[in-house]
Write a protein that binds this DNA or RNA. Structure first.
Lengths: 200, 200
DNA sequence: GCCTTGTGATACTGACCGGTAACACCCATC
DNA sequence: GATGGGTGTTACCGGTCAGTATCACAAGGC
């Protein structure tokens, strides 16, 4: 019943090679239902293929999870490049663009927080191949934010970066418990207030 | 292997009735390894009893999870009563005490975020009995914070409450990915800065 | 004495898990 | 037209999952 809706989104284009289809479907299912809640068979079926083909492309379910998260991280990096080219030479505008898009995503009906943060919650085992992906990305994200705050000429850029980053991370978690009614708008207000506080 | 260490912590006091032992052990195991990662048999064994006794006290694993989270929520409420009696008539001091304790917990080596928020990540199904517990508690938490900020005479208390709450929630998530090195101290600095910004 | 209530122990069910073996097939390349 | 790599299909493995049935036992109240 779950898989039917998934198969639609990917299965109608058979030109996409199985590996890409598997990655797309797995990312979606893991995100929506949780990593441990989805079995490899359901992924293969929803991708319009079978378990054998999955295991020909991925050594294990854990490696598939890690690869999915690598893809998510790459998409995040790509977004930053978009902000950079749209607001070249204006680091603060880039930060604002990022904040605005994240706030916007909060309102999505199928929003369920950050896939990487969720995976960290679900996979506490430090030896899991996905952990490295998560830690590297989250650290890079925070450092990138701090660098932009610094080159934006703001006071105490590291602290501002932490404030903005923790605020967003908290918003994405809170959206999963309390809900996200008006949360995006509130997040923007808070972010602006904090940037202003570091401008002096 | 996992259960051995758990059995130690509870099994040596046989005066505690099985239901309480089961709740304590289940809360610990769910928190440490994740809810879906722990089976009922492991819980029963770690509590020094068996699966039948577990199912005599809890209708299902889902109900056991919900009951564990109710216990966690009750402990949270209890902490707030402590702050209130320690700083009676000083709402801001109560907020600070809460922030300080949460910041302190961040540094614990076995810290793994908020049990309720983690459960929300792991149990996306809106019909799960644990969801109501999570949503009620998180909402009450935010409202209590807003009420304290208001009676503390601060400007825009709702927004300040959101800022502090999201900041903490974000810190507890971030501790699970990047780590918690100095995060507690940074959280305190940010909290103080935000309270100050709403004092005018 | 009895009888009830709570517990322990063991075995079981049916379903699902991640992962593999074996074999048929399609299709592009040469 | 042969060859070979990628794919589909089916069946299977051992293990674990949540949940249940059955029976034995121990204590406490009457």
């Amino acid at each position: 019943m779950k898989s039917a809706s998934l198969a639609l989104s990917v299965g109608n284009n058979d030109r996409i090679p199985p590996r890409a289809r598997l990655l797309a479907v797995a990312s979606e299912l893991f995100y929506r239902h949780g990593i441990r809640a989805i079995g490899v068979e359901a992924i293969a079926e929803a991708a319009g293929t079978n378990k054998m083909t999955l295991y020909r492309h991925f050594a294990s379910k854990d490696e598939l999870v890690a690869e999915c998260l690598r893809q998510v991280a790459a998409q995040g990096d790509q977004r930053w490049k978009t902000y950079e080219s749209a607001h070249s030479g204006d680091p603060l505008a880039q930060v604002r663009a990022w904040l605005a898009e994240m706030a916007d995503h909060l309102g999505d009906s199928n929003h369920r927080g950050c896939a990487l943060a969720n995976a960290a919650v679900e996979l506490p085992d430090k030896t899991h191949p996905a952990r490295r992906v998560i830690e590297n990305y989250k650290l890079a994200q925070r450092n990138r934010l701090a660098e932009l705050c610094r080159s934006g000429g703001l006071n105490d850029p590291e602290m501002l970066a932490d404030e903005l980053y923790l605020l967003l991370e908290g918003a994405r978690v809170t959206a999963q418990s309390i809900g996200s009614d008006g949360l995006g708008a509130r997040l923007m207000r808070m972010g602006e207030a904090m940037i202003a506080a570091h401008r002096r």
